[in-house]
Computed example of a mutant assay.
Amino acid sequence: MSRGGGWVLGRLDATRVWRDLATAHINYSVDEVRRPSWDMDTHRTGLATERPGAPEPTGFWAHACGLVRDYEFSPPEIVQALYDPAAPLLGRDMLLEARFHGMHFYCGVRVTEVVDELRENGDRVWGWAYETLEGHLERGKVTYEVIKHQDTGRVTFLASGYSQGAPTLDRLTFLGWRIFGRRMQLRFYRRCGERLRTFVQGGWRGDNVPPRSFPHVKHLRLAPSDAKIRRLDALAIRRIAPG
């Protein structure tokens, strides 16, 4: 996906935009990441508690891992994603649609890490991370992890990362990002934790669960599963690869 993509009115060929991600590169270097010009985030949410020890095969940790794998935690009113569910998780390209104030921004990310480990402190952790591609509103990396604290049985969700607004944004988009972007970013993290907690606990009670029947755009999955393709979306002002 090239930098500085155009504005789109009306129908969007999202499959083509997703396909273009294959030739895009990560849009930053880790050597650049430092305070104060980059934001560092750590957002932890308690999900539930199961018996101490290894994760239960059908317990809260296992259920949360499935939801995180499929991007079910993302609030669809803020961010939706298109990806190929048949592709391996590691290396998967995802086309994110960031929504705010009647505008939809289409930005690419790539899954560059899968976490699956038992840590020295006894925590059992599974998750994954994506990094931003050329054309994204931001530059940076976000890691999503489901953690079973085996000593206590607590299951938590951790979203952590670093980011900054892309320096290649045009003046108008940069101004909008300065005014709304950070606020929306923090709201996104908070809503991710809230949704995942609701779904994990709802799965145990048998209510407040996502449909788990995903909409599709051709062969691509639209996530989360409660995202909806609405006719009025065709009236939104869209921007492809704003960075």
Score class of each variant (00 low, 15 high):
residue 62 A to K: 10
residue 196 L to E: 04
residue 117 E to I: 00
residue 239 R to M: 03
residue 30 V to P: 08
residue 87 A to D: 03
residue 118 L to E: 10
residue 237 I to N: 11
residue 90 L to Q: 13
residue 166 A to E: 06
residue 220 L to G: 05
residue 172 L to M: 13
residue 218 K to E: 13
residue 233 D to Q: 12
residue 102 G to H: 12
residue 179 I to K: 10
residue 114 V to Q: 07
residue 200 V to A: 08
residue 47 L to F: 06
residue 32 E to C: 06
residue 234 A to G: 11
residue 134 E to L: 07
residue 32 E to H: 08
residue 145 E to W: 02
residue 219 H to A: 05
residue 101 H to F: 14
residue 160 S to V: 00
residue 150 Q to F: 00
residue 29 S to E: 15
residue 123 D to I: 03
residue 211 P to R: 05
residue 231 R to L: 14
residue 182 R to Q: 09
residue 141 K to I: 03
residue 100 F to I: 03
residue 114 V to G: 11
residue 151 D to F: 10
residue 192 C to T: 05
residue 230 R to H: 04
residue 106 Y to P: 01
residue 186 L to K: 13
residue 144 Y to L: 04
residue 107 C to L: 09
residue 214 F to Y: 15
residue 195 R to L: 08
residue 202 G to A: 06
residue 157 F to T: 01
residue 142 V to G: 04
residue 169 L to V: 06
residue 217 V to R: 05
residue 235 L to G: 00
residue 231 R to H: 14
residue 128 W to G: 00
residue 189 Y to C: 02
residue 151 D to I: 09
residue 69 R to G: 01
residue 58 T to S: 13
residue 2 S to I: 06
residue 13 D to G: 10
residue 231 R to P: 03
residue 95 L to H: 14
residue 146 V to G: 11
residue 28 Y to T: 02
residue 149 H to C: 07
residue 139 R to W: 14
residue 138 E to I: 07
residue 14 A to F: 14
residue 46 G to W: 15
residue 23 T to R: 15
residue 47 L to G: 06
residue 179 I to S: 04
residue 190 R to M: 01
residue 65 C to Y: 05
residue 187 R to T: 02
residue 228 K to H: 03
residue 119 R to H: 15
residue 28 Y to M: 02
residue 44 R to P: 04
residue 243 G to L: 09
residue 34 R to N: 12
residue 199 F to H: 06
residue 42 T to W: 12
residue 109 V to L: 10
residue 125 V to A: 08
residue 238 R to I: 01
residue 135 G to I: 05
residue 115 V to W: 07
residue 27 N to A: 12
residue 44 R to K: 06
residue 240 I to K: 13
residue 110 R to F: 07
residue 68 V to E: 14
residue 94 M to L: 15
residue 21 L to E: 13
residue 29 S to I: 00
residue 108 G to V: 04
residue 219 H to L: 01
residue 77 E to Q: 04
residue 161 G to H: 09
residue 171 R to Q: 04
residue 188 F to D: 00
residue 31 D to Q: 13
residue 115 V to H: 13
residue 119 R to T: 05
residue 132 T to G: 06
residue 50 E to L: 05
residue 161 G to M: 06
residue 223 A to R: 03
residue 30 V to W: 15
residue 130 Y to V: 01
residue 171 R to H: 14
residue 98 A to W: 14
